[in-house]
Simulated assay, not measured.
Amino acid sequence: MEHRNLGASGLRVPVLSFGTGTFGGQGPLFSAWGRSGADEARRLVDICLEAGVNLFDSADVYSNGASEEILGAAIRGRRDKVLISTKMSLPMGDGPLDAGSSRHRLIASVESALRRLGTDYLDLLQLHAFDAFTPIEEVLSTLDTLVRAGKLRYVGVSNFAGWQLMKSLSIADRHGWPRHVAHQVYYSLLGRDYEWELMPLARDQGVGALVWSPLGWGRLTGKIRRG
């Protein structure tokens, strides 16, 4: 398996990673993606590790936390052999504190993710969406606090526009806070928007791309269900 540095960081990651959106299968959206339980997840992790794939990506919204719980069970006893990436910021409920990237939300969400995953640190935390209601300074200073506390190794984003990413990087540089080293984006032969704005920016700023849906939501596999 080929490994590369993630962005401008020193973290070496495989060129292929494993997304765990199919773990859990709870709710109308994620039940349609897949319903892998702990036993199947453990078998899939075994296959990945045998092939040299050791980066596993999740999110708190995947089956309302069940994906992280199942991933945690699947890697139990071999935490030192894997890299865990997860995401947060999207709504986890209807309450005013159940969404976004405020200090209150991030600290609580990281603690919850650590508990579900059965670990005391995350290798990569990515903000799942830009929070326009919280000052970027508050978001980045909170991430800095969590990194200094040893709960996060690296930070990144997902689904950000170019200006949102650049503004975050500029503020991080100004205050000496951790820079985003990864951007998880939709990019496939069918969706090439990443090339227009974000790819040149990411290359110049040392932000690595973690691509989701490389097969264009299944349309390039020839197995998409129609009608």
Rank of each mutant, 00 (worst) to 15 (best):
R43A: 13
L44I: 12
D46F: 01
E50S: 12
A51D: 12
A51F: 04
G52L: 09
V53L: 06
V53G: 01
L55A: 13
D57H: 05
S58C: 06
S58G: 02
S58A: 07
A59F: 06
A59W: 03
D60N: 15
D60M: 10
D60H: 08
Y62I: 13
S63L: 05
N64P: 02
A66P: 01
A66D: 13
S67G: 06
S67T: 09
E69K: 12
I70L: 10
L71W: 10
G72E: 10
A73V: 06
I75G: 04
G77W: 09
G77Q: 11
G77H: 07
R79L: 11
D80N: 11
D80P: 03
L83P: 12
I84L: 13
S85G: 15
T86H: 03
K87L: 07
K87A: 06
M88N: 04
L90M: 13
L90A: 14
L90F: 08
G93N: 04
G93A: 03
G93K: 05
D94Q: 08
L97K: 01
L97M: 05
A99C: 01
G100V: 05
S101N: 08
S101I: 05
S102L: 06
R103W: 00
H104V: 13
H104A: 12
R105W: 00
L106P: 09
L106G: 07
I107N: 00
A108H: 13
A108L: 09
A108K: 11
S109R: 09
S109T: 08
E111K: 11
S112C: 12
L114I: 11
L114T: 09
L114G: 11
R115C: 02
G118H: 02
Y121M: 03
Y121Q: 10
L122G: 06
D123R: 05
L125F: 14
H128N: 07
A129R: 15
F130H: 15
F130R: 13
F130C: 12
D131F: 10
D131C: 12
T134D: 04
E137P: 09
V139L: 00
V139F: 00
V139I: 15
L140C: 04
L140A: 05
L140V: 10
T145Q: 15
L146M: 12
R148C: 08
L152W: 05
L152F: 02
R153S: 10
Y154K: 04
G156L: 04
G156A: 05
G156C: 03
V157W: 00
S158T: 15
S158P: 10
F160S: 01
F160M: 06
A161D: 13
G162S: 12
G162L: 08
W163L: 13
Q164S: 11
Q164M: 12
L165A: 05
L165K: 07
L165G: 06
K167Q: 14
S170M: 14
S170Y: 13
A172I: 09
R174Y: 05
H175T: 00
H175D: 00
W177K: 03
R179K: 08
R179D: 02
R179W: 00
H180N: 08
